[in-house]
């Protein structure tokens, strides 16, 4: 069985909770455990926050989120058309942040990587960033 959704919303921090709700709603039919549902919610929260806070950095913009499911595997992508990431390997390092002054801890990618089964980042300077994550639901 497959399913697909596509949502887009303004790059505002108040929309992060909306994105979490969408993700939780999308995976609900896959009958996730509480932990699995929380894993997906927190990973989406990190990816969407990054798009807003780093991708657009106070500029206006649109965040594009897509989710697919195939049997019990879910794939979620979050895309912005903002600044882009200069060095992806560096950005993924735990505790690396370009915004320490705003009390960022540099843990977003670490959280996505540990709570999902896979994480893929594509980025181009001044073109934007797409983060794609997958997770198998119901592996209990």
């Amino acid at each position: 069985m497959t399913n697909h959704i596509k949502v887009e919303f303004e790059a505002k921090e108040s929309n992060v909770s909306f994105a979490r709700l969408v993700a939780a709603g999308f995976i609900a039919p896959l009958d996730p455990t509480v932990d699995e549902a929380e894993d997906v919610k927190v990973a989406v929260s990190e990816a969407v926050t990054n798009a807003i806070v780093h991708g657009y950095d106070k500029r206006e913009g649109v965040v594009y989120m897509e989710a697919f499911s195939y049997d019990n595997t879910v794939m979620i992508s979050v895309r912005d058309t903002g600044y882009g990431i200069e060095d992806i390997a560096k950005a993924k390092e735990p505790l690396f942040t370009t915004k320490p002054d705003e009390e960022r801890s540099g843990l977003g990618f670490t959280v996505m990587e540990s709570f999902m089964d896979s994480l893929h980042i594509e980025s181009k300077i001044d073109a934007g960033t797409t983060v794609t994550m997958t997770k198998r639901i119901g592996s209990r």
């Binding site: 990190e46 009390e103 801890s105």
Partner: peptide, 13 residues
């Protein structure tokens, strides 16, 4: 009932 890395940043700060 929910916290992401922003909460960690808050506590460290």
């Amino acid at each position: 009932d929910f916290m992401d890395s922003s909460g960690v940043g808050l506590v460290i700060g």
